[in-house]
Simulated scan of single mutants.
Amino acid sequence: MGVREAQKRATREKVVEAARQLFEEAGYEETTIRMIAERAGVSVGSVFTTFESKVDIFNHILFEKFEALFSELKQISPYLKGSTRDRIASLMSIAYGVESRQLELMISHLGASHGWPARIEEESNQRHGRLLGLFRAALEQGQASGEIRTDADLDLFSEMLFAVYVRNYRKAYYEKLSPEALSALTERQLALLFEGVEAKA
């Protein structure tokens, strides 16, 4: 790696760390590029040589965060016990437990997603596709065991599960739900949803 590339990488790391701190302290909306530059000890121009916009920085931080979470969920998934519904509820509960520590950041992410560039939307969809994949894998296991109807649309149902998962962050934030209360709500929601796909005895 050349000197110029090393300097650019060092600047990028400073910008990311400064932005992460500010997003957590002041929130996404209140944080400006100038604030990030000042915290990082670099010029505003240097910020824009490493990222195109504030939402790009935000997306990068969330990507790192979600990668760690989804990697953990993927490792845990094969060892989850219970019915298909129980295993999916466990996946959501674990994710909520992790994300609840930075709930405001998640809400900012949901807000920033409205109107962001198509490129970032595509990146976000690819990232979230990993969680959808875990949901679908659990559903496929349920079909194989006879627990889930063979004619159930697993792609559509996985998307419905993901919609519930994301929506509940807003409920947790605005209704001030604890991780335990959020998990209990999720279990009730899943009980209703699974009535449509569970095989009848």
Rank of each mutant, 00 (worst) to 15 (best):
H128I: 04
S178A: 05
I76L: 13
I88Q: 00
P179A: 03
E175N: 11
L69E: 07
A89I: 00
K171E: 10
S113D: 05
S183D: 09
D86F: 01
G146N: 06
G142I: 03
R188E: 14
I88V: 14
P179Y: 04
Q141R: 13
S71H: 02
L161E: 08
L110V: 09
R101D: 11
E123F: 08
I148T: 09
G133F: 01
T150S: 15
M160F: 12
I120T: 14
S71G: 12
K65A: 08
D153Q: 04
L91W: 01
A144K: 11
G115M: 11
A181P: 06
S77A: 15
S178N: 10
Q75Y: 02
L91D: 00
S83G: 10
A163H: 08
Q143G: 06
E123I: 05
A184D: 11
Q75D: 13
G82F: 06
H109F: 13
R130P: 02
N168L: 11
E99A: 12
E104M: 05
E104Y: 06
S90T: 08
P117M: 09
I94G: 06
R149Q: 04
L105E: 10
L139M: 11
L103K: 05
S90K: 02
K176V: 10
Y96E: 06
T84G: 02
S90G: 01
S77E: 15
D155W: 01
E147W: 01
Q141D: 15
S71R: 14
G133I: 03
Y174A: 07
R170T: 12
D86T: 04
A138Y: 00
G97V: 11
D155L: 12
M92V: 01
K176N: 15
G142D: 04
A118G: 05
K171I: 11
P78S: 05
T84F: 03
F70I: 07
Q75L: 09
R85C: 02
G129V: 04
S108C: 06
K74L: 07
L103S: 01
A68E: 13
L69M: 14
S183A: 15
A95R: 04
L131N: 04
S93R: 06
E147K: 00
R127A: 02
H128Q: 10
E104L: 08
K171G: 00
L177P: 07
I94V: 09
E187A: 14
N168D: 13
S108N: 12
S108Y: 02
R170S: 10
R85V: 09
S183F: 00
G133P: 08
S113Q: 03
S113A: 14
Y169G: 00
S71P: 01
E72P: 00
Y169C: 05
E140H: 05
V98C: 07
I120L: 15
Q143W: 04
W116E: 13
L177N: 09
K81H: 06
F162A: 03
H128L: 09
L132N: 04
V98H: 06
L131W: 03
D86N: 13
Y169S: 03
R101W: 02
A163N: 02
G111Q: 08
W116H: 11
E121G: 12
R167Q: 13
G111A: 08
R170Q: 13
L185M: 10
E180Y: 03
G133R: 03
D155G: 12
S158E: 04
